[in-house]
């Protein structure tokens, strides 16, 4: 039998349950274990940990023992580079490195193997982080989703940086939403809810599915929004079709795997037949199996961008059954 990825979930999938305070952190972890959604558990630091980016030794110890108790392990810590936190200026390079280092320390205390950050910090910050990551033995990896893809100039620059630095502690966290079959139906419905006429929705669908370069697509959406008199909220939501849902050919994921430290198994809705129509899961799982990927994949249900219904657990359960079925093929 061939090697397989290790499945798990991010607690971000349970954003609706969390924000509505239906579950405490302990209860979320217990439920993940009870439903068999582990063993790998990812956490967005700024979502789940009050004191983040710094965490006390005591809190870290309690969290580790909580996961231990349920037979789970910490996979990826979702970090953020808040480079725009000052209203008037961007964080300097030095401040960015310090901000990442604090999160590295927290990841280490909690036992996470990977710290997720954002691509835009760029190669210079990654080069400075490399020795810190090696010392902490934590992989620092940037998340790749639309409008980025394996051959985007920004990504090629990072690949070149990772090759040059030659550290196994730097890499990517590809997100499956880079390679979507189509934006989910709930997304188009959101546009209608914001007042988009059907003809505008149809135009946005055509723009999304076209092969034009991304800047041109943004231009086409702006043009269409103007013609239909879309307001600010609708315009922002229209642009999200290009920033949330990518069209990278699945095969290009193979180019990223040598640098891949963890994967975000993004999805919006597994249907009653056990499939996710907006993402090419059969092809994605076949590729990971073929390439022998043995890293972790988090179920990342982002349907909460479109509904506040607390259905994260049932969705992640359906996702896991789908992935296991596809990996068994």
């Amino acid at each position: 039998m061939s090697a397989k990825p290790v499945l798990g979930t991010t607690l971000y999938s349970f954003t609706n349950e969390w924000l509505q305070r239906f579950y405490t952190l302990e209860e979320l972890v217990a439920k993940v274990a009870e439903l068999g959604l582990g063993p790998a558990v990812e956490v967005v630091g700024f979502q789940s940990f009050r004191e983040y980016p710094d965490l006390s030794d005591e809190f870290a110890r309690d969290f580790r023992s909580l996961l231990d108790r349920y037979g789970l392990f910490p996979s990826c810590l979702g970090g953020n580079c808040d480079v725009g936190r000052h209203r008037e200026r961007l964080m300097t390079e030095e401040e960015t490195v310090d901000f990442v280092e604090r999160q590295l320390v927290s990841a280490q205390k909690m036992g996470f193997r990977v710290l997720r950050i954002q691509t835009f910090v760029g190669p210079r910050v990654f080069e400075k982080i490399a020795p810190l990551a090696e010392k902490a033995k934590i992989q620092v990896a940037c998340e790749l989703h639309s409008p980025l893809h394996a051959r985007h100039p920004e990504v090629l620059e990072l690949r070149e940086c990772f090759d040059r630095v030659g550290s196994e502690y730097l890499g990517f966290v590809p997100d499956f939403s880079a390679s979507m079959a189509a934006p989910p139906a709930v997304y188009w419905q959101k546009l209608r809810d914001l007042g988009a006429p059907e003809a505008l929705v149809e135009e946005a669908k055509e723009v999304w599915a076209s092969d034009r370069p991304i800047p041109e697509k943004f231009g086409a959406l702006t043009d269409a929004a103007g013609r239909y008199g879309a307001d600010g909220a609708l315009r922002a939501q229209l642009n999200m079709s290009l920033t949330m849902f990518g069209r990278m050919p699945v095969e290009q994921l193979a180019e990223l795997l040598p640098y891949t430290k963890h994967i975000h198994g993004k999805f919006y809705g597994v249907d009653a037949s056990g499939n996710e129509p907006s993402l090419p899961y059969p092809e994605l799982m076949a590729l990971l199996k073929r390439e022998g990927y043995q890293g972790t994949i988090s179920a990342e249900w982002e349907g909460h961008a479109f509904t506040e219904e607390p259905i994260g657990f049932e969705q992640v359960r359906a996702w896991k059954a789908m992935c296991e079925r596809l990996l068994a093929k």
């Binding site: 971000y12 000052h86 209203r87």
Partner: peptide, 11 residues
């Protein structure tokens, strides 16, 4: 929003 934000981000 899904995560905490610095107070400096309130506008």
């Amino acid at each position: 929003w899904y995560r905490s934000l610095p107070l400096s981000c309130l506008e």
